[in-house]
Design a binder for these strands. Structure first.
Lengths: 121, 121
DNA sequence: AACATTAGTTACTTGAAAGTAAGTATCTCA
DNA sequence: TGAGATACTTACTTTCAAGTAACTAATGTT
């Protein structure tokens, strides 16, 4: 009998995939990294800090991060409006692992770039 | 003076992003997880194990993983052809961190699903 | 002679993520 | 009086990752 890999049956409905898919989009990880460095940050400050994100994608990504409980959104009923975003404990616990990945990428990127260059030839 | 977030200047050329982007695609992580469980695996066995990947995407993803030195491809000059894929040491070192993320996702997915449900209402 | 096997390639299509640009509400300040 | 600030929303367009399906080479098998 062959060894079975149970993990991968019905993988399309896999909840792990559902959760991790959100780490694979273009902006979520970056926003978490930024909010992990500060107490909180307002919308426009985030926009300027990241630089190349559109307002729309900033809004969309912040909403999904909020929906997952990774960041907290606080509205101050002032005019002009003030909205502050901060990372939650859950977000911080994820960020620990993301930072490990970033460290790994920094440690290995030279070797990887070299591998890619070799591979093309 | 405000605190600067150096990490994010010129982020589009950021090598960390270049490396981690490949973790964000649909199949790379899954293939690494499979190859992390066995000594090696042939193309068609991988295809059947994953189930819902197309031949094309399996080829494409294996090629990029190979280009990054995360897996090794060995061709045996037989007919019909035999090609074996195995994870490299570099791939294993990445997999450690990926598995941490998977563990985190498993630990937190219930809470996250609950948060998402609440958020929609 | 035709079918199976293996590990692909090729050409075309689709769909979802992301981008663009303009509009919105409300107040303050010059 | 009209321009600026803030945090968006909306409608439309683009892009590219991924999917589909057919084709390939070389040999062994019936």
């Amino acid at each position: 009998m062959e060894k079975k890999l149970e993990i991968f049956s019905h993988f399309e409905e896999c909840p792990v995939r559902k959760v991790l898919n959100r780490c694979g989009d273009k902006w979520s990880v970056l926003i978490l990294l930024v909010l992990g460095e500060v107490d909180n940050m307002r919308f426009n400050k985030l926009h300027k800090t990241i630089g190349d994100i559109s307002q729309k994608m900033l809004t969309v990504t912040l909403r999904t991060l909020e929906a997952d409980g990774l960041i907290k959104r606080t509205v101050f009923p002032e005019i002009p409006p003030r909205v502050e975003y901060e990372i939650t404990e859950r977000g911080k616990s994820l960020l620990v692992h993301i930072n490990k990945l970033v460290d790994w990428a920094e440690e290995n990127m030279e070797d990887i770039m070299e591998s890619r260059a070799k591979f093309e030839s």
